[in-house]
């Protein structure tokens, strides 16, 4: 049972969680809250199109039951920028043609935003040689760290170029400009 007070804060607004425990976080965001920026690709954790930030961390919203997010702070693509006020990551995706159809893009941008925070926090990846050293954002590192987001249009190299630009502009990797 979900208690009647179970809430999650989505893009700064508190919302009661859905009554049906089967509702995934993805369905709740899209179908109940109308936040359709987040996409359903595979619905099985295999593509990353549904990536959102929960407590600042990227997750696949398709594999998470909404009722498990009581008290969580959730951020979706709708809060990252707007058409007339693009976030630096969004602007860089446009500059570098980091998409074709755009279906994977909200997930890519949310993922990239979290990636910058993970770099700032010093998290290692499977490409990190010295696990205890500060990771550097090499193309190999960025590709590995973005590997949870599939792009069927194959915009990968342009996505990495966009990320490199934003990371270079944020030279101390503080995750501030994403």
């Amino acid at each position: 049972m979900v208690s009647s007070t179970a809430m999650a804060v989505v893009n700064g607004v508190a919302n009661p969680l859905p009554a049906d425990p089967r509702r995934t976080l993805l369905e709740w965001l899209r179908e109940d809250l109308g936040l359709t920026g987040t996409k359903k690709g595979c619905d099985h954790g295999q593509c990353g199109a549904c990536t959102v930030l929960v407590e600042g961390r990227r997750i696949n919203s398709c594999l998470s039951l909404a009722q498990l997010h009581d008290g969580d702070e959730i951020e979706t693509i709708e809060a990252i920028g707007t058409p007339d006020k693009l976030a630096p990551l969004q602007r860089a995706f446009v500059t570098h043609d980091g998409f074709q159809c755009g279906y994977c893009t909200p997930g890519q941008i949310c993922s990239a935003k979290a990636l910058m925070q993970e770099l700032a926090d010093g998290w290692a990846s499977a490409q990190t040689e010295d696990l205890t050293a500060r990771p550097s954002p090499t193309p190999e590192e960025l590709r590995e760290r973005m590997s949870g987001n599939i792009c069927r249009c194959g915009a990968y190299s342009n996505i990495i170029a966009a990320l490199e630009e934003v990371i270079a502009a944020d030279a101390d990797h503080q995750g501030t400009v994403a």
Binding site: R57, N60, S125, G148
Partner: peptide, 12 residues
């Protein structure tokens, strides 16, 4: 662990 799944999945 880092060789498995994806960053998003490892967060859950």
């Amino acid at each position: 662990i880092l060789a498995g799944a994806s960053p998003q999945l490892r967060n859950r």
